[in-house]
């Protein structure tokens, strides 16, 4: 299996075979294709971009053209085993609402995002005094679609507020390398943050 993005590998490790998946912002459908081919996963992708829609249809995956900021009201509660949001949270208008929506329609959520607390970002902003441009955040401040950047700490604080229980956390480098530095100081060395989580409400049942 060779996946073009470093977070895809971790996501496929987390997904249970033959489960149902909703992939929010599924891009060209690469992850869903892979999950469907190697794990027998079924489900849908949601995507807004015209070119990506054509690519998804070519790839033979189920894709629904929709703006995620309009919410997931077309999906019933608990329709999916997993709801994936890979490298899209930071580009959404209402990340907090989207997280809650994910756990309304799915049992578990998986989120990946570029870690703004990464050392390179800190140096560029702290010492250079300029908005960081990194391998995971390659665009200028004025043309980036990433409007809600956060760090691991920020994300975990939001989860606490939203009664979300984090089941698993990874921080990886852009090339999916992991090492002792990343394990000890994920918020400093992690370039991409990955979380698997569910609603705390489940425990109280």
């Amino acid at each position: 299996m060779s996946l073009s993005r470093s977070d895809f590998q971790v996501i496929s490790d987390w997904i249970t075979p033959n489960s149902s998946v909703l992939d929010l912002g599924c891009g060209n459908g690469e992850l869903l294709s892979e999950l469907s081919n190697s794990l027998g996963v079924s489900g849908y992708g949601i995507e807004i971009d015209d070119k990506n829609i054509s690519q998804c249809i070519k790839a033979g995956i189920n894709v629904i053209q929709r703006d995620l900021d309009l919410g997931l009201s077309d999906f019933d509660e608990d329709s999916f085993d997993f709801v994936i949001l890979s490298m899209t949270l930071q580009a959404s208008n209402y990340p907090h609402r989207l997280l809650s929506e994910m756990l309304r329609v799915g049992t578990e959520g998986i989120v990946t995002f570029p870690n703004f607390g990464n050392i390179s970002s800190r140096i560029q902003l702290g010492f250079g005094g300029r908005m960081p441009i990194t391998r995971t955040l390659p665009l200028e401040w004025y043309n980036t679609t990433n409007i809600h950047l956060c760090t691991l700490k920020d994300f975990e604080e939001l989860c606490e507020k939203l009664d979300i229980e984090i089941l698993e956390r990874r921080a990886v480098s852009h090339s999916n390398k992991t090492g002792p530095g990343l394990k000890l100081f994920p918020n400093l060395f992690g370039e991409i943050a990955l979380y698997r989580f569910r609603s705390k409400a489940i425990d109280s049942n």
Partner: peptide, 9 residues
Amino acid sequence: HDNDLNVSY
């Protein structure tokens, strides 16, 4: 998709 049918839109 309520019926888990394959659908693209």
